[in-house]
């Protein structure tokens, strides 16, 4: 599968949308070359604010900008956007439901070399727990670009979690992104796999492999983690024998938890979680090596499906 950069797609989308909409302003905490917000700075320097290495101030400043009718996008690594600036996001942005967009870049384990301090394995859980917050996790560059447009059109705080590395192109080029809509990327009937981010492509590989064994796997790209439609989730699992969730995140509080919350009364529908097993990240020399180390692989998804069908 061809791969492309999500963060470049993000930066380009900001530039594209910033051309049409002068309300868009971009704030950065000295990571513009990584988050690719720098692309916006090149085009619209007067609407780009370098806030220095001070994420808390950046988040609350964005609250003020939104109160002056701007649409601020704040940028940092996911671990800092959700962790360092948590209180500002909660108090100054989310409680009044301000129209601030938060980009958590280099999310999950995707900043493989930098180790646990820079790897966000709990940001989905943190952001999902905040009332008024919308949480998005694009699976590829095309979806990222569409999501940024949807974020501008959405009135309220949104968190987008972006991978640092180029990922396979798997989503549909056509149409707009609809926040809250789950997309079936592979139809199937035995097991439903809800995945997002890098794990969607892994789930597709697992589905391909299992097809040879006569197992039909449905893969759903759960790129909106919140708001999550109960009806949609229930419709997708209709007739399935089990559910697997797959995320580049701790199994505590993220996508798996969100799906399990919805399916809690489905007695005959066992769930397996593929994700980071309650541990911090670590440094590695390659992204794939790190994903493998934490069991974030097509093989792990295949094993989870097999386990469900055997039980």
């Amino acid at each position: 599968m061809a791969t492309r950069s999500l963060r470049v797609a993000y930066g380009q989308a900001l530039v594209e949308l910033g051309k049409e909409d002068e309300r868009i302003v971009v704030l950065e905490a000295d990571l513009g070359k990584s988050t690719m917000s720098i692309l916006f700075q090149e085009q619209y320097p007067e609407r780009y604010f370098e806030m220095g290495i001070a994420e808390q101030n950046m988040a609350a400043t964005a609250a003020g900008l939104s109160l002056a009718d701007k649409i601020p996008f704040i940028n940092s690594f996911a671990v800092f956007a959700s962790g360092r600036a948590y209180d500002q996001v909660r108090q100054s942005i989310a409680i009044p439901g301000l129209n601030v967009k938060i980009c958590g870049s280099s999310a999950g384990l995707s900043d493989f070399g930098d180790g646990s301090t820079h790897q966000a394995i709990e940001d989905m859980a943190i952001m999902r727990a905040i009332p008024n917050m919308t949480v998005l996790v694009p699976a590829d560059a095309v979806e990222t670009r569409k999501m940024v447009k949807a974020m501008v059109e959405w009135n309220g705080p949104v968190y987008i979690r972006i991978n640092r590395n180029d990922l396979p192109m798997i989503t549909d080029i056509e149409g707009d992104y609809e926040i809250g809509k789950l997309q079936v990327v592979r139809d199937g009937s035995d097991i439903a796999v809800f995945a997002n981010g890098v794990m969607v492509s892994k789930a597709l590989v697992a589905a391909d492999e299992l097809k040879r064994d006569g197992i039909s796997v449905k893969v759903i790209n759960a790129s909106t983690v919140k708001p999550l439609s109960k009806d949609e989730v229930l419709a997708h699992v209709q007739g399935c024998k089990g559910v697997v969730t797959a995320e580049e995140h701790s199994i505590i509080g993220g996508l798996g938890s969100a799906i399990a919350e919805v399916l809690r009364r489905e007695r005959n529908l066992p769930i397996e979680f593929v994700g980071v097993q309650d541990s911090f990240g670590t440094s590695a020399l390659s992204y794939d090596e790190l994903l493998e180390h934490y069991g974030l692989t097509a093989e792990a998804i295949r094993d989870a499906i097999t386990l469900l069908l055997e039980s």
Binding site: E46, G64, Q88
Partner: peptide, 16 residues
């Protein structure tokens, strides 16, 4: 947090 919010408002007002 108030001074940060005030900064954002002041920046926004100045832009407009």
């Amino acid at each position: 947090q108030g001074l940060s919010i005030a900064n954002g408002m002041a920046l926004g007002l100045r832009l407009d």
